[in-house]
Design a protein around this nucleic acid. Structure first.
Length: 171
DNA sequence: GCCAACGTTGGC
DNA sequence: GCCAACGTTGGC
């Protein structure tokens, strides 16, 4: 976990990285959804839940990361179009991420909605990202980093968009 | 497939 | 409250 320094304390974060296994849900899948929009549901980790519930807001930027493949990479961009609200897949006994402890009055788990923005011209692999001195500290590159929703600094965001050929995308 | 890193569970 | 056992994530 990263600790805030004095400059970050109390300031809003606007940029995030979200992981997905492309065999489960890829950036192409997001693009193909009606309106390019989908719920980011199924997160069952309290640290990520807190971000979804309390921090992630409409208009925030999302780096879309493909994990658990031969060459994991940031493949493109999405935008948050709805802030945190209860993840009702936790209430569905038939759902993969059903949680018997959750109820309508105590949803426990939260999700946001994200909308497709763009694919990068080429996927930004871990090797490529690590080569950039200002990206070497990214949470996703840290060994053992498992958080599926991570904060990204404004500086990191800007550099990643440049590397991805999306510097002109305004936020 | 291996295994390190991490979160969660549960005995005590 | 400690901590060992266990399950999962995810890079390699």
């Amino acid at each position: 976990m990263k600790n805030n320094n004095a400059c970050d304390e109390g300031t809003e974060r606007h940029y995030w990285l979200m992981k997905s296994e492309p065999g489960c849900f890829s950036l192409d899948d997001l693009k193909a959804r009606p309106g390019g929009t989908e719920h980011w549901d199924g997160v069952r980790n309290y640290q990520a839940r807190n971000l979804l519930r309390d921090e992630i807001a409409v208009g925030d930027g999302v780096l879309f990361y493909h994990s658990n493949i031969p060459e994991p990479a940031i493949v493109g961009l999405a935008r948050v179009v709805r802030g945190g609200y209860p993840d009702d897949t936790a209430l569905d006994p038939g759902a993969e991420h059903f949680d018997p402890r959750a109820s309508a009055g105590n949803p426990i788990w939260y999700m946001v909605d994200v909308a497709y923005v763009a694919h990068f011209a080429t996927p930004l692999t871990r090797a490529l990202l690590s080569r950039h001195p200002l990206l070497a500290g990214m949470e996703v590159l840290r060994r053992g980093s498992r958080l599926s929703v991570q904060p990204v600094t404004a500086a990191q965001w800007r550099i990643v968009l440049e590397l991805g050929g999306c510097a002109e995308v305004s936020w």
